[in-house]
Design a protein around this nucleic acid. Structure first.
Lengths: 120, 120
DNA sequence: TCAGATACTTACCTTTAAGTAATTAATGCT
DNA sequence: AGCATTAATTACTTAAAGGTAAGTATCTGA
């Protein structure tokens, strides 16, 4: 007789895995928070705010967020090109939760770093 | 004159980066949710619930969570060994936010997948 | 004519995360 | 004697993420 447990990680049925995997990367959350604070930003503006992101990763990150319908991309047919990014409604409905997460992190950062340093 | 912007990603001062990076990996969130649902679990029980995690990654994940003071590890000096894992208070204060995140993901999963499929 | 601006793309390389499979230690059970 | 049990660890390999640097198109202004 098998122990019929498993299935907590089923990718098809676990929305957390399926959806949240997408902004568990290095930059997505940061871009979302920045756009949430600033409203509308051009590519180079985001690039300057997040001083350490490479052009390539910013492109990749914005594209992923756009594909998921979290970021809206508006390109103006000018030269040199101008592209503006902003949050969609969907992303805006997510931001309060991310803000809570950020608050939790703020509140607990010191203790966590303390725990880490004790762990040798 | 330089454009004095930057610093949105400063790792020293950004608690979100610093703290949340740790459970943006493949398994941490899942382990936290499982322990939140189940209370106290032994290593092999977690392993069975999350059918697809390797022994190594479960060890690594639990150790990281323990170092951050999110998971409590209690080893009984028996043979064969028995080790029980549970959430700390700190992790429990985080769980409501993770639950909200999960609810958001649940609510928005279908739309997001729809957006993705449209994006070719 | 040529640098500068803009939002990328591409090729290449390094780093990190994760998976596989074998091994360990000490005991009880058969 | 030999196998199962438990919670790891170790060495090795593969896959994914991220970084670097250069290139692209088109126009403006010096």
């Amino acid at each position: 007789m098998e122990n019929e447990v498993k299935n907590y990680a089923d990718e098809e049925h676990c929305p957390v895995r399926n959806v949240l995997d997408r902004f568990g990367d290095k930059w997505s959350m940061l871009v979302l928070m920045l756009l949430s604070d600033m409203g509308v930003l051009r590519f180079n503006e985001i690039h300057k705010y997040i001083g350490t992101i490479s052009q390539k990763m910013l492109t990749v990150t914005l594209k992923k967020l756009e594909v998921d319908g979290l970021v809206q991309r508006k390109a103006y047919p000018e030269i040199p090109p101008r592209v503006e990014y902003s949050l969609t409604q969907r992303a805006q409905s997510l931001m309060p939760i991310i803000q809570e997460l950020a608050q939790w992190a703020n509140k607990n950062m010191a203790d966590i770093q303390n725990s880490r340093s004790k762990a040798v």
